[in-house]
C-alpha cells in the first residue's frame, strides 16, 4: 500500500499530475481553493495508489511526497 501527501498550499492547479497517474486517482479538488486561490490536486481512492510517484515526478512545484 502506498501513500501520497499533497502540500496543498504549494499547488498551482496546473493539472499535469492528473495526466500521468496510471490508476487515474489524481484529480483536481473542485470543492475548495488553497491560499493561492488555486483548486489543488488530490488523490481520491488512496488505497489504489501503487506508489509509482509519476504524479510527483511531473509536478513542477514539489507538491507531492510519496511513501511506500
Amino acid at each position: 500500500m502506498a501513500k501520497v501527501f499533497f502540500k496543498e498550499d504549494r499547488c498551482k492547479g496546473c493539472e499535469l499530475c492528473t495526466t500521468v497517474c496510471p490508476k487515474g486517482i489524481v484529480v483536481m479538488a473542485r470543492d475548495r481553493i488553497n491560499n493561492k486561490g488555486f483548486q489543488p490536486a488530490q488523490v481520491i481512492e488512496q488505497d489504489k495508489c501503487i506508489g509509482c510517484a509519476f504524479c510527483a515526478m511531473i509536478c513542477p512545484d514539489v507538491v507531492i511526497e510519496v511513501e511506500k
Partner: peptide, 8 residues
C-alpha cells in the same frame, strides 16, 4: 513505509 519521493 519509506519515502520513495520527496523534495531533494
Amino acid at each position: 513505509m519509506t519515502k520513495v519521493f520527496e523534495k531533494p
